[in-house]
Each structure stands twice: as structure tokens, then as C-alpha cells.
Design a protein around this nucleic acid. Structure first.
Lengths: 108, 108
DNA sequence: GACTGATATGTCATTCGTGACATATCATTA
DNA sequence: TAATGATATGTCACGAATGACATATCAGTC
């Protein structure tokens, strides 16, 4: 289940979609990474919009600054659970979370 | 972070939204449970629509029948990661996953 | 330059999710 | 009733995710 070929790559902020073939990632793998990246970006955006530091957020969710940094860089060691729960802690609704996963909003 | 007051309750299939106050769940907690329930329902629906047994799905994702059953009942021990990765294994796209999280489609 | 605050990176012990297994429950069919 | 197939529930050893800490990097400001 874990397929760790990507380990260090996603953390570096690669455009996963465009390098998928190059890295030899399966559809599921890249879809999963895309989702994590979307949530990671959303988390950072939410945090910054509330003028919180990583340390502030860490305190609020009972974690540490280093883990928040890893969340926002979509580190392989952070789970979707932690990302989602952090977003919820910032007041993001499940619907908002869903929106983060569909950057392509249905125009007209 | 774990707040296990709900342990056995969500698994039993309660209407979380309606019993939130009664159970004393925070907004975040109930939102998190709602999300898990939505994914759990989606997983079962997807699996059944492809005429797969829990054992079939388990084999496909490298897990076991018992864990699939727990996924579909939103057992507290199953992570969002596992739910999401299982959905992706069934061909669900990240956008589809997002749709599962917003049962209330924006009408008009 | 040095100092400060924020963020990034690496490591580790503890905790939690996991697959696997046993077994139970529930339908269906004979 | 028994037998078969599917699903549910309980337990456990193992591996992965976690918070915590140290330390590094980076931007401002003096």
C-alpha cells in the first residue's frame, strides 16, 4: 500500500501532474499526491489568511511547528487525517475541504 | 488530537449531525466524522457498482476483508488515507472524492 | 556584521493504524 | 436443517505517523 518511490520527491514541490510519467507514478499514486498537495496549499493559505504563525497553529492543534511545516510541504510522513483535521481546526468546513480538491471549478 | 469519546458511536451508524449536541461533540469532531461517513458510503457504493465483494476489494488494495468492512462502517480505527486510497483504487478521481464530501450540490 | 522571528530539515521514542486471523452474524439455497 | 457465501466484530504484532526536540536556513531590522 505504501509505494515509497516518491518519498522525497513530492516534498520538493514538483509539479506532479507534469512529471508523472517521468517518475513512473501510477494514476492512483499521483492522484493521491495531488490531493495532499491541494490540502497542503489550502492549509497554508488558511493559516496565513488568519495571520497565524506555524507555531500558533501548532499550539492550536496540539502539535509542533516542525510538523506544521511538514504538513504545508506535503511531506510523505504526514497523513491526510492530520491535514484535514488541521484544516477543520482553522474553521474550514468539509465543503471547503472538498473545494480544495477541485481546483477546476465548474465554470458556467 | 484524538478525542475518543465517540469511539463506538460513529461505527454504529448514528446520524451524527442530528445527535451532535447530545453526544457533546465539537464542530470539528462531527465534521471529521461526517467526512469519514461520506467516504465510507461512497466506497461501498463504488464497490457494489462494480460488483465486487469486500474480499475482492481487499485483494485489490492489498488489505483484508475485515478491514474493508471496517472502512465501510467508518470504524474509528480506519484513516482517511486508507479510505481515500481505496476509493482511488476503484477508479474514483480526486474530483469524485470531493463530490462525496459535498452531498449538497449547489442548486441553481 | 549581529540579532530576532519565522520557517525548514533531520532524528527519535511513543502512539496509533494496519493486515491478518479467528469467529460471529446474516441471507440464500438446497 | 445444513451448507455456502458475504459481511461484521474482536484481537494482536508489526510498521508507519506523530509530537518533540535540535538545528539549519532565511528574511528583516538594527
Amino acid at each position: 500500500m505504501k509505494s515509497d518511490k516518491r518519498k522525497r520527491l513530492e516534498a520538493a514541490g514538483w509539479k506532479v501532474g507534469s512529471t508523472r510519467q517521468f517518475l513512473g507514478l501510477s494514476n492512483e499514486e499521483s492522484a493521491y499526491i495531488e490531493m495532499k498537495l491541494a490540502l497542503a496549499r489550502g492549509l497554508r493559505k488558511q493559516r496565513e489568511s488568519q495571520n497565524l504563525t506555524q507555531t500558533d497553529l501548532a499550539r492550536r492543534i496540539g502539535s509542533s511547528q516542525s510538523r506544521v511545516a511538514k504538513m504545508e510541504s506535503a511531506d510523505p510522513t504526514v497523513s491526510l487525517d492530520l491535514l484535514v483535521q488541521s484544516l477543520l481546526s482553522l474553521g474550514t468546513s468539509p465543503q471547503d475541504v472538498a473545494r480544495l480538491l477541485r481546483p477546476v471549478s465548474r465554470a458556467a
